[in-house]
Design a protein around this nucleic acid. Sequence first.
DNA 1: TCTCTGGTTAGACGGGCGTCAAGACAGGGT
DNA 2: ACCCTGTCTTGACGCCCGTCTAACCAGAGA
Lengths: 125, 125
Amino acid sequence: MSKQAASRTVLDLNSDTPCCQPLAQRRVPAETAAVLAPAFKALGDPVRLQLMSMIASAEGGEACVCDLTPAFDLTGPTISHHLRTLREVGLVDAERRGTWVYYRARPAILRQLATLLAVEPTTTS
Amino acid sequence: MSKQAASRTVLDLNSDTPCCQPLAQRRVPAETAAVLAPAFKALGDPVRLQLMSMIASAEGGEACVCDLTPAFDLTGPTISHHLRTLREVGLVDAERRGTWVYYRARPAILRQLATLLAVEPTTTS
DNA sequence: TCTCTGGTTAGACGGGCGTCAAGACAGGGT
DNA sequence: ACCCTGTCTTGACGCCCGTCTAACCAGAGA
């Protein structure tokens, strides 16, 4: 949190306090949907979903762009564009250390999304 | 539980058996991402996210279109279009009973998505 | 059967998204 | 200081998405 961050005002999605109840328990209000939908939309691209997974599951919790880019059959700018999309919705955070840029996942917002999708283990049938 | 399960033509998103491990534990393969991304994309629209919530949290587990449509400032065909999107990715199921059409949530795929986004409760910071 | 209501489908339009090539920027090495 | 490597930004292009109006289809009721 040293640099200017994403300057996107991601609300409280990055906090650990749950922003909302599970989707199946209470109807999600319009304002909440307007804030959470972009995060799901960001994960709605196969490349970004893989990028998110590679970053979140990386050793030490961070992944270098130099490791992410060659994993796809896409150009560098395209990967950079997808990474920026993930950053703008608060799913990842970027940090430049020397030559390379490292991306780190933000588990808080992932928890928010997972909580929203949570379903009762035994709901009728 | 090897990666062989992903070699299927279509992942069984409607089964209760988890299709994959959490996104932050293991890198999600391309085929899995290609199947799951559309589901996230479907939830990436505020209207569809609210529709999904209204259906999943409805009494009796199902919601009538006649109750869904007036909740938005959109035309009937637009709501119908969004509902079809949710149906095509397997998030909901539609059934016509008499005059009205009822939509029902599919908790299995919701569980799949929630599992994918699951994060260790106490990992690092 | 005819008609009325509710819901979906078809067609179209404007805006946004994914992708690339080319240029700009940041740091390190010589 | 210069260049070289690595990454991000810009501008552009084509496709897809969200929305609408108009037309079509399925049941219920008379």
